[in-house]
Amino acid sequence: MTSRAPEPRRRRGDYGVDGDFAVVPARWQAVIVAAIITALTASAVREAVSGAPVGTVATGLLALGSALFVGSYLYTTLAGKFQVWAGIFGDFGLRGDERALDLGCGRGAVLLMAAELLPRGRVVGIDLWHADQTGNSPEATRRNAEREGVADRVEVKTGDITRLPFADNTFDLVFSNLVIHNIPAAAGRMAAIDEAVRVLRPGGRLVIADLLATHRYRARLLELGLTEVRRRNLGWRMWWGGPFFPTRLVTATKPF
């Protein structure tokens, strides 16, 4: 019997908000965005009162667009990514005894969904715990594992995904969600791809969701000899603010 995808609406952990908070904390980002939308809305009202239709339409559209951008972003980080990854994992037909690795696991949103599907397996999450998620820390991930009831099959490590501390051919499944693009140099991103392939067992699956350079990931995987290499758009549930910021998925299989 194959494993069934977990129900994405029953998450018990606290997974925070995805984003870059290294320079400006999340709270201040929220205040700034709210102030911008409020100012644009007030400007649209003033233009309407003064009888300036062009200004009213322009500022009104800016206010509406900003609100839709924020709404799309929050939907993706708080709900959409769970729905999308439930479908991705559900397509794999996992046996339930696999060993899996999450590259850049953060607070465990995707890591722990995988763990639910592997009652006889093991899931390892590795991260450098940068401020690309609110409250990002190994302690937060372990607390979420406890809340989701999967702590007995989850291991959390601190490490660099361009130099993975694992032996060759260790994992049946290697996956990553919106992480590799954070590596600043192209050489570093390719090193992360190479490392993911190195630790993947023959016959194992590699799954990478990311915002940028996914066509290069696909090309590199083909160079490395992987098979069933595919790339696709994950759709509106993983738009980071709108259709101009989509997430794409790259999947591949390591040959025997």
Rank of each mutant, 00 (worst) to 15 (best):
S3T: 14
P6V: 06
E7I: 07
P8G: 01
P8N: 04
R9P: 00
R10F: 10
R10H: 15
R10L: 15
R11Y: 10
R12A: 02
A22W: 07
P25V: 14
Q29G: 15
I36A: 10
I36Q: 04
I37R: 03
I37T: 06
I37C: 08
T38S: 07
L40G: 12
L40S: 12
L40Y: 02
T41V: 03
T41C: 01
T41Q: 00
A44Q: 07
V45L: 09
R46K: 13
E47T: 06
A48R: 07
G51Q: 04
A52F: 09
A52P: 04
V54Y: 12
T56C: 11
V57N: 04
L64R: 14
A67M: 13
A67E: 09
L68T: 12
V70W: 15
S72M: 12
L74P: 05
G80N: 00
F82Q: 00
F82Y: 07
Q83V: 00
G87M: 02
I88E: 00
L94Q: 08
R95Q: 05
G96L: 09
E98D: 08
L103V: 02
L103Y: 08
R107H: 12
G108D: 06
G108C: 08
G108L: 12
A109N: 12
A109E: 15
A114Q: 08
A114I: 12
P119A: 04
P119L: 13
R120K: 15
R120W: 14
D127M: 13
D127W: 13
L128H: 14
Q133W: 10
N136Y: 12
T141I: 13
N144Q: 14
A145G: 14
V150N: 09
A151M: 05
D152Y: 06
D152A: 14
V156M: 14
T158Y: 05
D160S: 02
I161G: 05
T162C: 06
R163K: 03
P165W: 04
F171M: 04
D172Q: 11
L173S: 08
S176K: 02
V179H: 05
V179R: 07
V179W: 06
H181T: 06
H181A: 07
G188T: 03
M190A: 15
I193A: 02
R198K: 01
R198I: 01
V199T: 01
P202R: 03
P202D: 01
G204R: 09
V207K: 01
D210Q: 02
A213T: 11
H215M: 07
H215D: 15
R216I: 12
Y217R: 05
A219Q: 14
R220W: 00
G225F: 05
L226G: 02
E228C: 04
W236G: 10
R237F: 03
M238H: 02
M238I: 03
M238N: 01
W240S: 03
R248D: 14
V250S: 05
T251M: 08
T251S: 10
A252E: 01
A252C: 08
